[in-house]
Amino acid sequence: MISVKDLHKNFEDLEVLKGVSVEIEKGDVMCVIGPSGSGKSTFLRCLNLLEKPSSGRIIFEGDDLTGKDIDLDLHRQKMGMVFQQFNLFPHMTVMGNLTCAPMLLKKTPKEAAEKKAMELLERVGLADKANEYPNTLSGGQKQRVAIVRALCMEPDVMLFDEPTSALDPEMVGEVLDVMKELAADGMTMVVVTHEMGFAREVSNRVVFLDEGVIVEQGTPEEVFGNPKSERLKGFLAKVL
């Protein structure tokens, strides 16, 4: 579904990604782990071109997103993204957040967009918050709304950028539960995370990124159970 070919990204003189290649198949739940500064978030943000790669190619459903004449906005509609800081629109109600993109970009009629939003809100247990403003919600509720906002566009893949890192510990579980449900439904997901439990339990592939390169990748059993490189062993010893 997404194939990343020799991805490089520089910020000024700093080389953050030094040639990352990876294939993401339909239905994959791929967790990206690694120490801070390893380039995980940059890698994820390159997938939907929020960061412009310095070189390399991102092929999404057969189209090269780094190509010149590509309609990025159209492809981004099919790639949902969830941010560490939620980034809900504070001047709109929860319902406004959920319906504004489908109504604007897909020309979904208001009633249909609201019906779909309501169904999804019910699934994450927030139907009663539809008319609230984001800042009346807790962090965990905000992040669940943010996930629903992305889902309302009916994406083919969901990108998660450390979705639980800004949450109080007691709220991490509710967000992970929603993500687990999503994975069980067969959604293709790429998740940058520090939640090793989630990576081990839910993902089918784990990628360990360090200093801008993929040091090791494999099934959770391989990566967590039988790490080969010293760097991965050292990392796991610190986080597990």
Binding site: D73, R76, G80, M81, Q85, A101, M153
Partner: peptide, 15 residues
């Protein structure tokens, strides 16, 4: 306005 707002909008496919 927080930079994340533009990113969130762009990630949904808005210009």
């Amino acid at each position: 306005v927080d930079k994340g707002q533009m990113e969130a909008g762009r990630s949904l496919g808005m210009s």
